[in-house]
Amino acid sequence: MSILSWNCRGLGNPWTVSKLHHLVKEKKPTIVLLMETKLRADRLEMVRIHLGYDYMVVVDCVGRSGVLALLWLADMGIEIQNYSRWHINAKVCPSSADSPWKFTGFYGHLDPSKRVESWSLLRYIARMEPGPWMCIGDFNEIICLDEKFGGSGRQRSLMEAFQRVLEDCELLDLGYRGPKYTWSNCREAEDFMKERLDRAVANRGWCDSFHDAKIVIGAAVWSDHFPLLLTLNNSGGRHKGRHTFKYEAGWELDGSCRTLIQKT
């Protein structure tokens, strides 16, 4: 199975819908998470039919911004648990042979001063139900300055708060293949800026069950965000081999960790 996550920045443009249709036709994702569609449920229903998905849940927009939508196929067991303007939480039951796991489509608050509310929500979701958990979406935050190019500096406290919530929720970054930065402001010269705002994270229980999972970052067309495709090649059971070591750029924020790295 595979999961497509994309902040499409509006589906009112027919070219954006065409790009989405092309992605779905080429990658054949079982589940699709869309953010910032800026379409109400009735118009998104037409998009669902056009894409060929059986089910959909939509969190309607407030004003002219927002809207989260989750689409999935009939052969994918999905039980919607709860949702808000900033998340859709579901239980995934792929088949009777596989254990269910928690899925969260997440959208971080655009206002940095209110991002603490996003992290409180993430902590709340983490406490809701134990077991394997994967969270994907646009977090609207970076872990460290290495995930940013151009523009002015980033407040250290904002990055540390993001790193801290991932640690508190015991979520590991699943990495990526493809472009490093998932968003750009589409400007030129000294005004150009890009950041890694979109990602997938999961707890150890989920990583043990899906040790071959990989994230591929696609090309940005008709949006300032790149789409993410999470592919799950192996499900059920624990990985009997050795875990692959992954360096987390966010560790650089920890002074003691930096000292340890220099000594080794």
Rank of each mutant, 00 (worst) to 15 (best):
V62I: 15
V62S: 13
R64I: 09
R64G: 11
S65C: 11
S65N: 10
S65H: 15
G66V: 03
G66F: 10
V67L: 10
V67Y: 10
L68G: 01
L68M: 04
L70M: 15
L70N: 03
L70S: 04
L70V: 02
L71C: 07
L71F: 09
W72A: 05
L73T: 08
L73V: 10
L73D: 09
L73N: 09
L73I: 09
A74F: 11
A74Q: 10
A74D: 09
D75R: 12
D75H: 14
D75K: 12
M76L: 12
M76A: 14
M76T: 11
M76G: 07
M76D: 07
G77F: 11
G77N: 06
G77T: 01
I78K: 05
E79R: 14
I80K: 03
I80W: 09
I80G: 02
I80H: 02
Q81E: 15
Q81G: 06
N82T: 08
N82S: 15
N82F: 06
Y83H: 07
Y83K: 07
Y83L: 08
Y83D: 03
S84M: 04
R85E: 13
W86N: 12
W86Y: 14
H87Q: 03
H87G: 03
I88R: 00
I88H: 04
N89D: 15
N89M: 10
A90M: 01
K91A: 14
V92Y: 05
V92M: 08
C93V: 09
P94I: 11
P94V: 08
P94K: 11
P94Y: 12
S95E: 06
S95Y: 07
S96D: 14
S96P: 08
S96R: 15
A97G: 08
A97F: 13
A97C: 10
D98A: 14
D98V: 14
D98T: 09
S99L: 12
S99N: 09
P100M: 06
P100K: 02
P100L: 06
P100G: 03
W101R: 01
W101P: 01
W101Y: 08
W101D: 00
K102I: 07
K102L: 11
F103T: 00
F103E: 01
F103Q: 00
T104A: 07
T104Y: 05
T104E: 02
T104V: 05
F106L: 09
F106M: 05
F106Q: 00
F106C: 01
F106N: 01
F106A: 03
Y107G: 00
Y107S: 00
G108T: 00
G108S: 03
H109S: 06
L110G: 12
L110Q: 13
D111V: 02
D111K: 10
P112W: 12
P112T: 03
P112N: 12
S113W: 10
S113A: 15
S113C: 13
K114W: 11
K114Q: 13
K114C: 11
K114L: 14
R115T: 02
R115E: 04
